[in-house]
Design a binder for these strands. Structure first.
Lengths: 188, 188
DNA sequence: GCAACAAGTCAACGAGCGGTGACTTAGGCT
DNA sequence: AGCCTAAGTCACCGCTCGTTGACTTGTTGC
């Protein structure tokens, strides 16, 4: 950190990605400047361009990740939330990558597309594996609930959601998760 | 619209507000430029400043609104969603004011504060009036669900939520709304 | 009909942005 | 030891933004 910046491309690139993630997560896409990211690492802004080409590609690289959701098949309905929520907290509180993507997705169609892609490739398959019917709708509705919780808790800091401990939020969310995934479908 | 711009301050100001709402809703705060808003109305950008002082105050004026949620007291639990959801659709699909606020709230602390304020002043009272216990948490969780639905449907356009008709979404959301507001609290 | 005042225009500013290209310097290889 | 390549620096461009202040023009009350 305070070391005289050893000339190591791999390390510099990694630090740059971490700094970019933090900035994008905290400030969103537009308000994040290449100059600020470079300053966080202690290098010249021009080097960011040399490494990543341009701002959009830096964002794309920073928004790359895997969710690693657990396998839910074989779980009893009331165990699903307990298996899912710990990953939820880890993903949103860990390094801010997902928060950066969500913030950017609100104003950038490219980021929104990436969000849909992540959902379709990494979230939906795990959920649809255990739904009795309407897999797309159930997965979509649970995704909406999760995004709403994350927005209320980590972005808006709305009291009543942000004040809850991990255990309390898990307890409150459990019946909703269970119902959306395995409860009866509405009768038309 | 194509008229030679009659010199009427009240009217110009109203058109300006409508254009600002549309731009903020579509592009977010940072990507919305005063020049674009002014061009939409067909006037000089300097006039926007003369009317609203600066960009932040223009946004504040554009984000002002009332939700007009219906009175829920006396309703049976299964009737609540049916009374609430029509307002939900109206608010989000009407003129984009709320969408503008949500988009801006993702990156601007000022807008996030306004979001909390609207929730506390206009949403929470209506909900807490019918909750048997934990009013803040129940209202907060329902707010999270609603924000998640709006984000998935109107911002991310995530299939499975965006594809549903009003009636279908109401039917799917009804048990969740009912449970969050009136269902049993989790046992610690 | 004409002045006075408000509504609207015009040109320009200073700052900050993303991005470019030529330069300098450190460090590993022979 | 000395070079050669890659890592990092530097000065700068062109652009767009929010905002300003001086100007012009239409409308309205007398």
């Amino acid at each position: 950190m305070t070391a005289p910046r050893s000339r190591n491309a791999k390390e510099t690139r990694a630090e740059l990605l971490a700094a970019a993630r933090a900035r994008f997560a905290a400030d969103g896409y537009e308000r994040t400047t290449l100059r600020a990211v470079a300053a966080d690492v202690g290098i010249d802004p021009a080097l960011v361009i040399r490494y990543f080409g341009n701002k959009q590609e830096l964002f794309a690289a920073a928004a790359e990740f895997t969710l690693d959701l657990p396998d839910l098949t074989g779980l009893a309905p009331e165990e699903i939330a307990g298996a899912l929520l710990p990953r939820f907290f880890a993903v949103w509180e860990q390094d801010g990558t997902f928060l950066a993507l969500l913030r950017a997705a609100m104003t950038s169609p490219t980021a929104a597309e990436k969000m849909r892609e992540v959902f379709a490739a990494q979230v939906a398959p795990r959920l649809t594996a255990i739904t009795p019917d309407h897999p797309r709708r159930r997965a979509g509705l649970l995704g909406a609930f999760v995004i709403g919780l994350a927005t209320s808790r980590y972005v808006l800091a709305n009291p009543g959601v942000a004040d809850l401990s991990h255990d309390e939020l898990t307890a409150w969310a459990e019946p909703v998760v269970r119902h959306l995934l395995t409860g009866p479908a509405p009768t038309p």
